[in-house]
Design a protein around this nucleic acid. Structure first.
Length: 490
RNA sequence: GGUCCUAUCGUCUAAUGGUUAGGACAUCGCCCUUUCACGGCGGCAAUACGGGUUCGACUCCCGUUAGGACCA
């Protein structure tokens, strides 16, 4: 049975350590979030470390993206970030010490031969493992090979024993080091590999808890060996389950976006993303799932994290995003949204494709209507395109229920009369509603054709809301056009 | 292929030996209503399978199956 003792975490130092080899992935964002939450909850420190030992694949553009998205999500590191590529002296020192203590050895084996050997082992159904050819060379033999100019790598001596480590989420995880073998920690004294650089930095940065994806479980055993070889304290581990794609497999481009920036560009709010991500693998005790970052800091507990991988379910993200959009004022949303396609600002007026001139107040009104319907910031304007874009529609659309064209035309004409008698102000403040309501006992007979006349759509915001933005003249123009359509078509 | 990890509604999950197996999203129905949306109310829906342990298993143990990760 798993240990029941309460997990005590005191002033933890945790780190988020991504490799800048691509735009920040949603899975990385969640790892960062969980690290951040543990740090804040237990009054600890959250650090960012860029793991760019792979100089071929690490790009400045990707590194910048990591900083940018973390900032946007509100996951600010507590200390200045470090970059592995600028700490070579540190790794070199460790490698030299390990070399002098004979805890590592130089391996001169030919790459191609090793690969051949590995293939053979796999075919035989064994775990591929280094045989130890160079593990016991004498000083002389080593010097000879070096003098002969043979290339070499540096391997750690790994005792063939069974061991285990404690994981905050999974309990004890067992590892058979015999299957690992003497693995490569550096290409040379000056070129550390991932398995060396990571534990060295974790030690020198005083990391107490390593919270990362479960894809690192196999790495943990290796990194633990470095800690032990150096006589350092091994940190506590917590391996998060992975985020899965819609089909249950790895989250991939095929099923939609995978990077934070794509969701941001599509108009998702950081509040929604954080809230969504934390629910992938964690759940609050009281079932109240709408949680701000502050709420999360108060409630989060790493021991309640799920062990199973979680499927990335976009519809819940939609739901949360809409929730947070509704919380924001329309003013605020306007500042987050880009102007609709083709619209531009000129002297405080917003000019649409069809020449319409809107005020900022109009835009705010439009967003007020849009936020009930939009899933994302990007969709905020999409329920009102007909205001500033030309449109056409089938006259058939104007008909309400099974009333004939003549009856509808009559109703529209009466509507037109009401508009013509009203002034612009009573259009904009919807005072004309009283007169329009009086026109018929069947409100649909009045409002349905009006909706279509104004928007060209069968699904739109309420007609009077449209009128309040369009004003008297533009409304009349559209109603006349509709009457004309009815007359010619029928 | 080997090693490791995992298994509750379609999805995210709650319930750590005794519950009518709870909630959220999605979905469906009803109400509101001039359409869509919002909102309100309600419905459908799960312990992978087989063995144990136990008075009693979602819960503990073993096996099977399935999925995932790593080696790549």
């Amino acid at each position: 049975m798993m240990s029941e003792k309460e997990i005590k975490i005191e002033s933890p130092r945790v780190r988020f350590a991504p490799s800048p080899t691509g735009y920040m992935h949603m899975g990385s964002a969640r790892t960062a979030l969980f690290n951040f939450l543990v740090a804040k909850k237990y009054k600890g420190t959250f650090l960012l470390r860029i793991e760019d030992t792979d100089s071929e694949r690490s790009l400045p553009e990707y590194e910048a993206d990591i900083f940018e998205q973390l900032r946007w999500l509100g996951l600010h590191p507590d200390e200045e970030s470090i970059r592995q590529s600028s700490r070579s002296d540190l790794y070199e020192g460790v490698i030299k010490q390990l070399l002098s203590e004979n805890k590592v050895f130089r391996c001169f084996c030919d790459k191609a031969e090793l690969e051949e050997e590995r293939q053979r082992q796999i075919l035989e159904g064994k775990a591929p493992k280094y045989k130890g050819t160079c593990a016991h060379l004498t000083e002389n033999e080593i010097q000879q090979k070096i003098d002969a100019g043979l290339p070499s790598v540096i391997r750690l001596r790994v005792p063939p024993q069974k061991t285990s480590f404690q994981d905050l989420i999974r309990g004890e995880v067992k590892v058979d080091l015999d299957l690992v073998g003497d693995f490569v920690i550096a290409k040379s004294e000056h070129q550390p590999l991932f398995h060396l650089a990571t534990p060295v930095d974790d030690h020198y940065q005083g990391i107490t808890h390593i919270i990362r994806g479960e894809d690192h479980i196999p790495n943990t055993a290796k990194q633990m060996m470095i800690f032990k070889a150096m006589g350092w304290n091994v940190p506590v581990f917590a391996h998060l389950p992975l985020i899965l794609g819609e089909g249950g497999g790895k989250m991939s481009k095929r099923h939609g976006s995978t990077s934070v920036r794509e969701y941001r560009q599509a108009g998702y709010l950081p509040e929604a993303l954080n809230n969504f991500l934390v629910l992938l693998g964690w759940h609050p005790k009281d079932d109240r799932e709408i949680l701000s970052l502050d709420n999360l800091i108060a409630q989060f507990d790493i021991e309640r994290v799920q062990k199973k991988g979680a499927v990335f379910n976009v519809s819940k993200l939609h739901f949360l995003n809409r929730h947070y959009m509704k919380q924001k004022s329309s003013d605020e949303l306007l500042s987050l949204a880009a102007l609709p396609d083709g619209m531009y600002e000129k002297e405080g007026k917003y000019i649409g494709k069809n020449g319409i001139q809107l005020t900022k107040q109009d835009l705010i009104k439009i967003i007020e209507l849009g936020k009930e319907r939009a899933h994302t910031i990007g969709e905020l304007f999409s329920s009102a395109l007909f205001l500033w874009e030309d449109f056409d529609y089938d006259a058939q659309l104007l008909l309400w229920k099974d009333y004939g064209a003549e009856k509808v035309r009559l109703a529209l004409q009466q509507t037109l009369a009401v508009f013509e008698q009203a002034d612009d102000a009573s259009c904009k403040n919807q005072a004309i509603k009283l007169s329009l309501d009086d026109l018929s006992s069947d409100k649909g007979l009045v409002y349905w054709p009006l909706r279509v006349a104004l928007s060209g759509l069968k699904q739109s915001p309420p007609p009077l809301d449209i009128v309040s933005i369009l004003g008297k003249e533009k409304s009349i123009e559209r109603i006349k056009k509709a009457i004309c359509k009815l007359s010619t078509k029928f």
